[in-house]
Amino acid sequence: MTPRAAAISPAARDALQRWLETLAALEDVAENTVAAYRGDVTDFLGFMTLHFGEPQGLGALSDIATADMRAWMAELRNGGTGARSLARKLSAVKRFYGWLAEREGYEPTAVLSTRAPKFQKKLPRPLAPDAAKAMIETVELQSAKDWVSARDVAVVTLLYGCGLRISEALGLRGQDAPLPEVLRITGKGEKERMVPVLPVARAAVERYRKLCPHPLTADTALFRGVRGGALNPGAIRTAMQAARAQLGLPDTATPHAMRHSFATHLLEAGGDLRAIQELLGHASLSTTQAYTAVDTAHLMEIYNRAHPKA
């Protein structure tokens, strides 16, 4: 426990724990999100404790003013926290504080009215179709062990061929293979979706299974590290990093870029945006729109080709 976290009053710590348990149990928030909220709000409560010079019980938290919020944000910025990360932290604090204020009956305006810093959203940078294919082919060359090469190809093929997040691909279990034609994926927020699996992806996974030296039992990870444990996503990132260096691709050619590429290339081929939204598991159509990088001229070409003529 950090010194800042240790300074938090027991009452505030208990309130944070109750809120996190509520999120996990009643709002079906993903474990990674709960962990991020815990860290962000713990940091906030710890700052306020030191800022006021004494442990802050629940009653004292109601005295937080706009100037105190600005002081917290200023410290984060001075410590190197970027605008995007600061906005995320503020969002977590607001969510916790709104819940706490409702329970304790005090006015949360000073916290909830704090504005997040503006930042320019980075547009996704998918690979061109030939670059995506080359990436899969070149990833295979990054290991001297055939089974590791087959493993990396299988994972990257699932990212590009099925639009999976890397966490979703690495979350597959032995019981999921051989992969069916349609795979049930549990994504962010425990939201389930059905994803078609291309024959090339099924074949890649089967080749890996045939070569893998570790026993792939039903209840263990499908993709394994060299020592037999569950595969760490860093291994795939490293393989892709080496491959993109060979191919002369930019640093944005990451595992997540393969998912971006899946969405963009489907839309370029005339795919329906809402269908792509379902395949990706996005809650909002606007998120899917941001995920694709099809220029306006190409969108108009798709529109003119698909729209019924009078």
Rank of each mutant, 00 (worst) to 15 (best):
L179R: 04
R88H: 05
V195S: 00
V139Y: 13
A15N: 02
A15I: 03
P199T: 08
S284E: 14
H307L: 08
G174M: 06
V111I: 15
K191W: 00
N78Y: 08
P180Q: 01
P124A: 13
A269R: 14
V226Y: 12
A239T: 06
L183F: 06
A257K: 03
N304E: 14
R259A: 05
P126R: 09
A101E: 00
R259V: 04
G79R: 06
E54I: 07
L280Q: 01
D28L: 09
N32T: 14
A203K: 15
A60E: 11
G161M: 02
G234W: 08
R224C: 06
A293K: 08
R173M: 13
A30P: 01
A242F: 08
P108H: 03
L50S: 13
A110E: 09
Y37H: 08
M1R: 14
A134T: 08
K118E: 12
D251V: 11
A87T: 05
I276E: 01
A87N: 09
A290F: 09
L280N: 00
T264N: 02
L23N: 04
G59Y: 08
E206R: 14
Q17N: 10
A92G: 01
V148K: 01
I276Q: 01
T287G: 06
T288P: 00
I136N: 03
R305A: 15
A87K: 03
V195L: 03
W19S: 01
Q289C: 05
A110C: 07
H282Y: 01
V34T: 10
A177Q: 05
T33A: 01
F96P: 00
S91N: 12
I185Y: 04
A128H: 12
S284G: 06
P178V: 12
I8V: 15
R18M: 08
C162A: 15
A65H: 06
R77G: 10
A290W: 11
A25L: 09
Q56W: 01
L198Y: 12
H51M: 04
T49D: 03
A242N: 12
F119D: 02
T296Q: 11
T157D: 05
V148G: 03
H256T: 12
A283W: 04
V226L: 10
I302F: 05
K122N: 11
A24L: 10
A128D: 13
S91A: 15
R70Y: 04
L211G: 07
I166W: 02
V155G: 02
P55Y: 04
H51A: 02
A36H: 00
P129C: 04
P233W: 03
E192Y: 09
K118L: 10
K89P: 00
K309H: 13
Y208R: 12
W19K: 08
E190D: 13
P178S: 13
Y303G: 04
A239K: 03
G248K: 08
P124Q: 07
Q246P: 04
A269W: 07
M240T: 05
T292Y: 07
A306V: 11
W19P: 05
A116G: 10
A218G: 14
L112E: 05
E102V: 09
E104Y: 02
P196E: 13
